[in-house]
Design a protein around this nucleic acid. Structure first.
Length: 739
DNA sequence: AAAAAAG
């Protein structure tokens, strides 16, 4: 289907073509499976980039890439073929894309690069081969992505993947791109076991991590991070806690306690059930306030907020009580978050928080055996029917923090209507990017399924049919992105009048120009009160929740309780921040040296074109790399991201589309080829690493002229980083890459 | 200014 390929659009097109072996999807439709010899196309595709670039980079030769890689990893399979392949050179560029696509040969796949040599050629060939493709190609691609994993996976993930894989395949054919993806996400799971699938998805990555992860996974999700810092603490004892805390160390929590009061006070209400109510108010603001020591962890964060807070200054606000004040930077403060510390959560179970048995079991299967701080903090309030503002880094458990109580709440309201055909959705979860929406659904769907509720994804870049069909059949929870939701809303295909719980993930970003308006329109279309006469709920979450959300809070929320998790900030710690001042002309070479390491790396570029260019440059240099940005069609986006999560590539060059929320296990290095726009961007980008308590490194490349800017950003983010001048061949590059 | 989000 053409549709999915909306790729037809300009950019997309190119990318698609470039990437798709054959024509692109569009082509497909026309030709439909293939037919035409795409030869011409193929070549061209890549050409665009290739042409120029290749010239410049002759060397990149194919093999090298592989080989190196192979050596590293897997690759066995492809070798055979590879050997044969002749010219990859030309193809290469194309290849890169192709590669991605190529999934076909699994064998190859495994070796990511697989065919190195082959690829290019092959892919094209394939194209040409129309015949095969049908079968092979497409399937392959998708498959590959998936498959590849499989093979690999198996080792690691075997189980999951299967699902994933399959789904894809089937779909593939049809539309392939779209579907497959969809499937991946959805289909598989549902059919089978929702849980699993999810797991897979989630896990998969991890699994990939294989070594480590598989096991962990469970833990991974959250545990890790928190664990470290917080958990120790303990307890939920909440009540008790206070006392303990001291001990804990965890300053944070305690902090919370201390703080908590404050903010919480306001929130007080919120405390509702929860004893703990952790609350330390955000801290920072108060920051100074309390116990310094403990907080330190907090400190970091606070800082961020600080900004917000600072100005405002806390106490005042608190007193004010307004739960929310607009404007000022204060935002958060006003929000006055209560900081929950890990300690509080110790010993607490989801059941203690009010979550039912089925959901608790589903959570356990997802790896969430016990609640993390942000969850312990927000779940009670959500169940109490309150509006909630939660600040917590993705991965800290935000998704479950709103997902679990949302489902629990829906059960209460919903009761038996659940399965009614054509029933209107009662909950809505919005995210700023499709990938994040998919990731959220992977977690929420199994939770919902555990109690007989259904979720459906409503996001752009894929055909309408499936989404409209799901809505017609009736679903309970919508997980999507603003554009498509608004689109279907306006087309009368989506009825939000019965939505009693709305969630905005990355809420501050959702208030940015371009997002705010659609979001407002969507929220206006949701119910104001529940069938029982209670106020419909609004939940806003983000790692950088600040006053930016004031507009929405004032317009749609009612006396929200604000929560944050102490110690969650990126600043927290396990991340080593570096800034390299590099001559503009040396930038690309420096970047190449930085991403040459073995660990998973995400490189952030300011524009799509640069992200694409860098990915190709890296590939040509023999580095397994791919890209993620808005110029790619959705299937490509999904696939490329999975290439990284599965480990088939270890370098992903992306625009800020990947800055927020995306969780990939074991990212050891984040490179900012272009300085971030602001401190928030810095925090979100760097937050892709250092997860789970693992160590991570963030290297920001800046030209001399930007030195000042980056220093300001770091200051604002309250991050300390070494800033040094560097150039190609510097030892530091190899050292950073080696981590 | 760019990116993302509908096509």
């Amino acid at each position: 289907m053409a549709p999915y390929d909306k790729g037809a659009n300009s950019r997309a097109d190119r990318s698609d073509r470039a990437r798709h072996p054959n024509g692109t999807p569009a082509a497909r439709s026309a030709k439909h499976r293939g037919f035409r010899a795409p030869e011409p196309t193929a070549p061209r595709q890549k050409q665009r980039w290739d042409a120029e670039e290749r010239r410049s980079r002759p060397s990149s030769g194919e093999r090298p890439n592989w080989e190196p890689r192979d050596s590293r990893g897997s690759r066995p399979a492809w070798e055979p073929r590879g050997a044969g392949r002749p010219a990859r050179g030309d193809d290469r560029a194309p290849r890169s894309f192709d590669r991605n696509d190529r999934g076909p040969r699994r064998d190859d796949d495994r070796a990511p690069r697989r065919d190195s040599g082959d690829r290019a050629p092959r892919s094209f060939d394939r194209n040409d081969r129309a015949p095969r493709r049908d079968s092979d190609d497409r399937p392959r691609r998708f498959d590959r992505d998936e498959r590849a994993p499989r093979s690999f996976d198996r080792n690691d993930r075997a189980p999951r993947r299967d699902d994933n894989d399959r789904a894809p395949r089937r779909s593939d054919r049809d539309d392939r791109a779209p579907r497959s993806f969809d499937r991946n996400d959805r289909a598989p799971r549902r059919d089978n076991d929702a849980p699993r699938s999810f797991n897979r998805d989630d896990r998969a990555p991890r699994s990939f991590d294989r070594n480590d992860r598989a096991p962990r996974r469970d833990s991974d999700d959250r545990p890790r991070r928190f664990d470290r810092d917080e958990r120790a603490p303990r307890s939920f004892d909440r009540d008790d806690r206070a006392p303990r805390r001291d001990n804990d160390d965890r300053p944070r929590r305690f902090d919370r306690d201390e703080r908590a009061p404050r903010s919480f006070d306001r929130n007080a209400p919120s405390s509702h059930g929860r004893p703990d109510a952790p609350q330390a108010p955000r801290r920072a603001g108060t920051g100074s306030q309390g116990p310094s020591a403990p907080r330190r962890d907090n400190d970091e964060r606070p800082r961020r907020f600080d900004r917000d807070d600072r100005a405002p200054r806390s106490s005042d606000r608190s007193t004010e009580r307004t739960p929310f004040v607009p404007a000022d930077d204060v935002k958060l403060e006003k929000l006055q978050a209560e900081a929950t510390i890990a300690a509080d959560v110790d010993g607490v179970t989801f059941g203690d928080l009010g979550i039912g048995g089925n959901i608790s079991r589903a959570l356990a299967e997802l790896g969430a055996a016990s609640p993390f701080p942000i969850q312990a903090a927000t779940i009670p309030d959500v169940l109490a029917g309150k509006d909630v503002l939660g600040r917590g880094r993705t991965g800290s458990g935000k998704t479950i923090a709103f997902g679990a109580p949302l489902v629990e709440k829906l059960m209460e309201h919903g009761g038996g209507t659940k399965r009614k055909m054509g029933r209107a959705p009662r909950a809505l979860i919005l995210a700023p990017t499709r990938e994040l929406a998919l990731q959220i659904d992977r977690t929420v769907q199994p939770i919902a399924r555990s109690v007989g509720l259904f979720t459906t994804q409503i996001y752009g870049g894929v055909p309408y049919g499936r989404q409209e069909g799901a809505l017609e059949r009736g679903v309970d929870i919508i997980v999507g992105t603003p554009g498509r939701v608004q689109d279907l809303l306006n087309k009368g295909k989506l009825d939000l009048s019965e939505v009693v719980i709305s969630v905005l993930d990355e809420a501050d970003h959702m208030c940015d120009l371009g997002f705010l308006e659609p979001v407002q329109e969507i929220l206006r279309a949701t119910a104001e009160v529940t069938p029982q006469g209670n106020r419909a709920q609004k939940l806003l979450f983000s790692a950088t929740l600040d006053t930016q959300v004031a507009a929405l809070v004032e317009q749609f929320l009612h006396e929200p309780s604000v929560h944050e998790v102490a110690g969650e900030d990126q600043a927290s710690s396990t991340i080593d921040h570096r800034v390299l001042v590099v001559e503009q002309r040396d930038k690309d070479r420096v970047l190449e040296e930085l991403v040459a390491g073995e660990g998973k790396t995400i490189v952030f570029a300011r524009t799509r074109a640069y992200a694409e260019r860098l990915a190709e440059q890296f590939e040509d240099a023999g580095i397994r790399a791919t890209s993620l940005h808005g110029d790619l069609n959705q299937s490509r986006r999904t696939r490329n991201l999975s290439l990284l999560t599965s480990g088939r590539v270890n370098v992903l060059v992306a625009t800020d589309v990947a800055a927020r929320g995306i969780h990939v296990d074991d990212i050891s290095l984040v490179v900012q080829a272009d300085a971030p726009d602001d401190y928030k961007a810095y925090m979100h980008r760097s937050g892709r690493t250092g997860r789970a308590g693992k160590e991570g490194t963030v290297v920001t490349i800046v030209p001399r002229s930007r030195r000042r800017k980056i220093e300001g950003i770091l200051e604002h983010a309250e991050i300390e980083a070494d800033l040094v001048e560097s150039g190609p061949g510097d030892r530091i590059l190899a050292e950073l890459a080696a981590r």
